[in-house]
Structure formats: structure tokens, C-alpha cells
Design a protein around this nucleic acid. Structure first.
Length: 498
RNA sequence: GGUUCCGUGGCCGAGAGGUUAGGCAGAGGUCUGCAAAACCUUCCACAGCGGUUCGAAUCCGUUCGGAACCUCCA
């Protein structure tokens, strides 16, 4: 199914037709996590959003090289200008009395586990900053050679005014006004080695107590935060690739500086299209550890948080994020999650019913056109800047048709088998391959639990046939206290974990 | 203060000049030994005030409210 893909380019602030650099292939770079603590729930939303984008590109038949880095050095916290800043990984290593690489590994592992829970596909390449020190040093050299970097006391800074003079367009992504930047009145702190407040470090000299450091032409030190993405995207995707993504919060300074570095080093803007995902709010407010308005992925799943009345499964959370557009803020509330949980179940049950359908043999029946239109509609919504909520709405309209057929409110005589087969394929492709959902209700497929449950339900079914309501209710109540819901249908009984 | 963006029914959330978004909840009904579940039907809307237009939730102005970045926090 070839459709013209449109996407909203943050760089131009316009929706544009997508044309890859090399036909049939897509180079996609997404800024990954800084692995100094457990992954933030908002970060999970970002990676779920890009997973959807990745999956849809794959579904369209593109050969996608998806690069998502791990930042394990260079991301500082504190005041850079006064050298009070400390590397996030190093700081955590000091506090936990571990090697920095142990910290990076520990939280990388945790991050991977969480991504797996949310059914996020692994990227094609997951490079880490510490594994690409030579590439970063090389890029600093290029930047200096091109006149956009200067050394001071063993550190190297990107010369923003020099860059502006040549290229004029610094700040395009984040809407910064060049003149304002140049005239910035903020005083440089005495200790600062920077010539201009807007300059930023691309190589930093390490202090004696600093653990993570490497030899370089300028000092024993470490690369600046933004540099790893520039170096690694260039290495694996080339000087000019298709899509660069990340969270909205990274637009400035991270992505702006990345662009400047790439242009400064290679003369090329790195990516043709920039995609930014929006923030996840909790009860209408930004998540913040300090004021308690915060929930971790684990707390959300287990329900161990004052912000939720119960735990929500990873797929419920994933479904929840699909109901909004990736570029909109999404407000996480207990009520909204409970609604998502039910909606998710309705979608999955609809698919289950659908997969057993058989239509009429002869082609072209009255309902075919309506069904086809909804299927095609859901695909074209996805092609329009990955509009999952709109596509999902169409899928739910299909669910209503499916249920009507199932309940004989509509007749199978009015649907051709071709149409049913197409619907079966497209519907399950959509929810499993594109949306990346999975059915959690019946795990343990064919295992011991399923066998036992079948036995129990058979016994209850016999009791009901004999109008032995005492036994049948006893079984139902006992299962209910184990959080298993028994569902009685015309064809018999089934069960689902609450 | 600067740069972006948003305010949609009880809740979440699409849409974007004239047409039903969708999910959840509510109401009515079907089914059922009872119930639950499931299914069907259905009510409720575009922050306030001006303006443009034959027509505005959608465009413009303005007021109020919220969010992000600029400063450690995804």
C-alpha cells in the first residue's frame, strides 16, 4: 500500500510531503536517554511515539535505519560557566560508589526492560557516546578547522557569533532571534572561558577528580553534551539524512546546537525533517520530582502511587498514548487511564470476534464500500503526519460494524468474503504491527493455566445446565476474588484477568 | 521578560470556515437463572469579549487561564 506520506517539519513549521534522500530508504535518528537514573515516564511516551512512526515507516515498505543513541557521558548538571557543573553519570557513580560504566549499564538495562514492556521495537543501531570518542574528537577538529571553534584552557567552545556571521540561521529550529542572542546582556561569569554567552562547550577539560576522561589534542577531558548526537548521526546515517526526532524539550539548546555543529563541521544541515514529540503532563501539570507531581513507569504499572487508583498495564498505557497526537501535550489522569483500559479491551475484543468471520462468496456486497472506506481512511490518517488518534477512531467505527455483524444486527449476506478477509488482515496489522499493541488478556497461551481454567469453566457450565446455581455462583465468586472475570456468552463462558 | 504552543461536552482527546470524530462516564434498551461482561441506541461542546464572512469551534484582534524551552528536572 503506497501512500503519500506527509509530516510536520519542526524546522520549517509546515506540513511537508516526505521525500527520502534515497528512494525506498529512511534514515531516522532519535535522541535517546541519558542513562543516569530510571527512565522517566515522559521519556517513555516519546519513545512510544517514535516507535509508532518507525513501525508505520516499516509498514509502508521503507527500509529504515533507526538510530537511537544512549548518552553516557557529557550531559552535565549545574552551572557550566563556573565549572560547578558535574557529569550526570559521574555524579551518580560517586553517590552510588560504582564505576560510571556500571551506572550507565544499570540504567541502560532498566531502560531496555521498560521499552520491552511497552512493546517498543529496538532500534537498528543503539550507539553510546563513550563508544564514539574518536569520532567526536574528529568533529571538534573539523569545527575548529572551519573557524567555528576555539580553544580556551584545554576546553573547546563552539563560536556562535562566528557561525551566525557565516550562516545567519542559528536559532531557526527554536525560533531564537539572532540579534537578541548577539546582544545578550547576561554577564559572563568571571571564571568563564567563553567569548560569548551563547557559545557552548564541544570539548571540556576534566578536573583531576573527574573520572570519565579521554586524551585529546586539547586536554584530558570529555565531549560536550550535544556533540555525541552530531558525531553518531553522521557516522551511521551520513552527513545528510531524512528524519531527526526527539522530545520537544530538546529543541533548545540540544537540537539547535546539533544543527550548528553539523553545519560547522560538514557544511550540511543534518536532517531534512525534524519531528518533535510533546510532553506528558500529570493531572494537568508538568511532572516534577520536587513537588511530588510525579509517577514512574513502574509505579504506574503496579499502581503504587497516590496518583492512580490501581495499576495500569503497559498496553493500556501504550493505547492511552495512541489516543492523542504525538505533537500534542497529553494529560495523564487516573480517569483517562481507566477510560483507555476499557477502550483498549473493546478494540481487542472486536479484533478477536472479527478473526472468526466468514463473509458471502460473491463479490461486491452493500457493506463493502463502507468498510473499505474506513480501512482506507485509517491508513490515510496515519499517512497524514502519523495521526494515530484519527486512525484509531476509524478502527472503532469498524468495531461497531464488527459487533453488529457478530450480534446479527447486520447480515453477513451483505459483506463479501474478500472484504472480510481484507478487513481481518488490515485490522490486525493495524493494531499489532503499526500500533504495536499486544493482547495481554490471554497470556500463557495453551499452558497450564488455560487448561485449568477450561476445566473449571466446564464444571461450572455443567452446573448451570443442571440449574445448580449454588455451585455455579460459588465458582464465579471464587474466581472473582482472584481477580478473574467470568464472562457468560451465548456460546459458553470465557474468562479474563481483571 | 524573550521564543514556541494550547484552551473543545462530566473526563480524555481528534478536527480546523458550512458535514457524526472516537474512547470513557451518564441515560434508555437487548441478552442473562440472577448478575457481570458484551452489544445496540442516545443526551451533553467548542474559555470570555470584539471583528472579518452569506456562514466561525475553525480566520484576525484582545482579555483571562494552562504548558514547554530560554535555567538542574524527559
Amino acid at each position: 500500500m503506497k501512500v503519500a506520506l506527509k509530516l510536520y517539519n519542526s524546522l520549517t513549521r509546515q506540513k511537508e510531503d516526505f521525500t527520502p534522500v534515497v528512494e525506498g530508504r529512511v534514515g531516522l535518528y532519535v535522541c535517546g536517554p541519558t542513562v543516569y537514573s530510571d527512565v522517566h515516564l515522559g521519556n517513555c511516551r516519546t519513545f512510544i511515539s517514535f516507535d509508532l512512526i518507525y513501525r508505520y515507516l516499516l509498514y509502508l515498505g521503507y527500509k529504515v535505519r533507526y538510530v537511537r543513541n544512549v548518552t553516557d557521558v557529557g550531559h552535565l548538571e549545574g552551572d557550566v560557566d563556573t565549572h560547578d557543573a558535574e557529569d550526570k553519570i559521574s555524579k551518580k557513580a560517586r553517590l552510588e560508589q560504582l564505576e560510571p560504566m556500571e551506572i550507565a549499564q544499570k540504567y541502560t538495562n532498566g531502560f531496555h526492560e521498560m521499552m520491552h514492556l511497552f512493546n517498543v521495537l529496538p532500534p537498528s543501531i543503539e550507539p553510546r557516546a563513550t563508544g564514539h570518542i574518536p569520532e567526536q574528537i574528529e568533529m571538534v577538529e573539523q569545527i575548529i578547522a572551519n573557524g567555528f571553534g576555539y580553544e580556551a584552557n584545554g576546553s573547546v567552545y563552539f563560536d556562535v557569533p562566528a557561525f551566525i556571521e557565516k550562516y545567519k540561521n542559528y536559532g531557526q529550529l527554536s525560533g531564537r532571534v539572532v540579534d537578541d542572542l548577539l546582544q545578550e546582556t547576561r554577564d559572563l561569569k568571571n571564571q568563564s572561558e567563553k567569548r560569548h554567552p551563547a557559545d557552548f562547550a564541544i570539548w571540556m577539560k576534566a578536573s583531576d577528580e573527574h573520572i570519565m576522561k579521554w586524551n585529546s589534542p586539547w586536554s584530558v577531558g570529555f565531549p560536550g553534551w550535544h556533540l555525541e548526537c552530531s558525531a553518531m548521526s553522521t557516522k551511521y546515517l551520513g552527513e545528510r539524512f531524512d528524519i531527526h526526532g526527539g522530545g520537544n524539550d530538546l529543541k533548545f539548546p540540544h537540537h539547535e546546537n546539533e544543527i550548528a555543529q553539523n553545519i560547522g563541521a560538514c557544511g550540511n544541515t543534518p536532517a531534512n525533517y525534524w519531528l518533535h514529540t510533546n510532553m506528558l503532563l500529570l493531572n494537568g501539570k508538568k511532572m516534577s520530582k520536587s513537588d511530588g507531581n510525579n509517577i514512574t513507569p513502574v509505579e504506574l504499572i503496579t499502581g503504587n502511587s497516590p496518583h492512580v487508583s490501581k495499576g495500569y498495564s503497559p498496553m493500556t498505557v501504550r493505547f492511552f498514548t495512541l489516543q492523542s497526537h504525538y505533537s500534542s501535550q497529553l494529560d495523564l489522569t487516573d480517569e483517562a487511564l481507566a477510560a483507555a483500559e476499557k477502550g483498549f479491551r473493546r478494540l481487542m475484543e472486536g479484533n478477536k470476534a472479527l478473526q472468526s468471520f466468514v463473509g458471502s462468496k460473491d463479490g461486491n456486497k452493500p457493506l463493502d464500500a463502507e468498510i473499505d472506506a474506513l480501512i482506507n481512511g485509517s491508513f490515510s490518517e496515519m499517512a497524514d503526519d502519523f495521526n494515530a488518534p484519527k486512525a484509531l477512531a476509524k478502527l472503532f467505527e469498524l468495531v461497531t460494524i464488527i459487533n453488529k455483524l457478530n450480534d446479527k444486527h447486520l447480515s453477513f449476506d451483505d459483506v463479501s468474503n474478500d472484504c472480510i478477509e481484507r478487513l481481518k488482515n488490515c485490522f490486525s496489522d493495524f493494531i499489532f504491527k503499526i500500533f504495536g499493541l499486544s493482547d495481554e488478556s490471554t497470556n500463557d497461551g495453551g499452558g497450564v493455566v488455560d487448561g485449568l481454567m477450561q476445566l473449571i469453566l466446564d464444571i461450572r457450565s455443567d452446573a448451570r445446565t443442571n440449574k445448580d446455581w449454588t455451585t455455579s455462583d460459588k465458582i464465579r465468586n471464587a474466581l472473582s476474588s482472584l481477580k478473574i472475570v467470568v464472562k457468560d456468552n451465548k456460546e459458553g463462558s470465557s474468562w479474563v484477568k481483571e
